[in-house]
């Protein structure tokens, strides 16, 4: 089992009222799975993904990754966990506007002790695999939506993580580009054995996954 979360509770406080984003949710994900998480807006699916990525906190619950407890309250260890284990992709690509394609993809490596030569060879190899080698010097505003998302995927893969988390990865893309991106995910899952969890509203995307779960009011319903 790659992921095992048990009895996760997450509350949001708005003045006197409390919203239960996660209400005792438990989930297990095997290595090599491609899981789709579906649900309405505000159902808690993105909150779950953020907790799995180590960028949001839980009020209660346990999180095991590869049978090891994730240090949810230790900022430094959590940042190392995110860097080494997780590749994170979001709908708006989360690229830094003043960095070109090469530097955006190289960002995670710069927090580790890689030489310039190593960074160069790793980044260029990955850009080649997502067909962006010729766009290495372009800035995000010079790229199309699909190209931006491929840059984001390349960055998510640069540390060779076991787990890729994607929050509405095709939400900003047209159908053709959406298919291209999903083909990449399928390749990563089937050929490279990556475990992928995708949060989506889109049934067509969910159909391409090996398992689909539905969340409603912070609980898994199906």
């Amino acid at each position: 089992m790659l992921i095992n979360v048990m009895d996760l509770y997450k509350y949001y406080h708005h003045g006197d009222s409390i919203t239960k984003a996660l209400d005792g949710l438990s989930l297990q994900v095997k290595k090599g799975e491609m899981l789709a998480i579906m649900g309405r807006s505000g159902s808690g699916k993105s909150t779950l993904l953020n907790i799995l990525a180590g960028i949001d906190y839980v009020d209660k619950g346990k999180y095991y990754y590869d049978n090891k407890k994730v240090p949810l309250n230790n900022q430094k260890e959590l940042s190392i966990f995110r860097r080494d284990k997780i590749g994170f992709i979001v709908q708006n690509f989360a690229l830094i506007g003043y960095k070109n394609t090469f530097d955006n993809v190289a960002l995670p490596l710069k927090y580790q002790k890689y030489t310039k030569k190593e960074i160069n060879s790793k980044v260029m190899a990955l850009l080649k695999s997502v067909s962006l080698k010729d766009k290495a010097n372009k800035y995000p505003h010079e790229l199309s939506g699909g190209e931006c998302q491929r840059v984001a995927i390349a960055r998510a893969l640069i540390n060779d993580p076991e787990l890729i988390l994607a929050d509405e990865p095709t939400g900003s893309l047209d159908i053709k580009t959406e298919e291209e991106i999903m083909d990449i995910f399928a390749y990563l899952n089937q050929e490279l054995g990556k475990t992928i969890i995708i949060v989506t509203h889109n049934f067509d995307i969910a159909k391409k996954c090996t398992r689909v779960i539905h969340i409603h009011e912070g609980k898994i319903t199906a």
Binding site: A53, I55, Q75, K76, S79, I80, R82, R83, I86, F88, A94, L95, I96, L107, P108, Y111, Q112, R155, N159
Partner: peptide
């Protein structure tokens, strides 16, 4: 802040 958030999901820490 958004750039800091991007750095945080790519291996940075609050201290950094």
């Amino acid at each position: 802040m958004k750039n800091y958030a991007i750095h945080l999901i790519n291996g940075s820490t609050i201290i950094y």
